[in-house]
Amino acid sequence: MTPEQIRSEIEAAIPGCSVEVAPNGAVPGQASLAVDRLHALEAAWFLRRHPGLLLDFCSNVAGVDWLDREISEKVKVRKLVDGVEQEAEETRKSKIPGRLEAVYHLFSIEKKQGPVILRVRTENRSDRVEIPSLTPVWRSAEFQEREIFDLYGIVFTGHPDLRRLLMWEGFTDHPMRKDYVPPPEDDGPQDPRGAVGKEAAAG
């Protein structure tokens, strides 16, 4: 099934659910489905039970951080210049608000098919970062969602055991975010122009 077909099926089966097909420039035919976060859990159950898809295996769950972006596009506008209608080019700047995203790669072991790519997005990157956990549907998401919570700061509501996975308890930041600033390290590559280098040159 193509992503468009899946989209229309989901939208038909779950009233009020909006699905967007996100295109993929690299691999044709592997567009992903961005499901709105309110209906994500229902949509996941639907995909797993769908007799034609039977997506019983959630292989990979990845977090992605999209910063605020400004895109400028050139648009043609008709303007009245000195009473004459003229076509002119104008640059419009639009701001795409940043958000966090969890990407699920779903396969079917039963049917040996896949992947269907599901994306669930948060509202923004700062305070509204809740999305529903899909661990009740696929338990393979359990550790991976914990990892995303840890490294990206997405809060998965309904997750059975949402704790940090890799960083230690008490760590406050989210190191995989694009704007993360690591603390200064003291055992990185040595700069030969620094003190150690002078010592090495002397001895």
């Binding site: 993929n24 690299a26 691999v27 592997q30 292989s59 990979n60 990407v103 790669h105 790519i117």
Partner: peptide
């Protein structure tokens, strides 16, 4: 590479090793 995304996987000795 062109802008886009990809998920590749192989059967590693320990299981499915994937890169996204």
């Amino acid at each position: 590479p062109k802008a886009g995304e990809v998920y590749g996987r192989i059967e590693a000795p320990k299981g499915e090793l994937g890169f996204y």
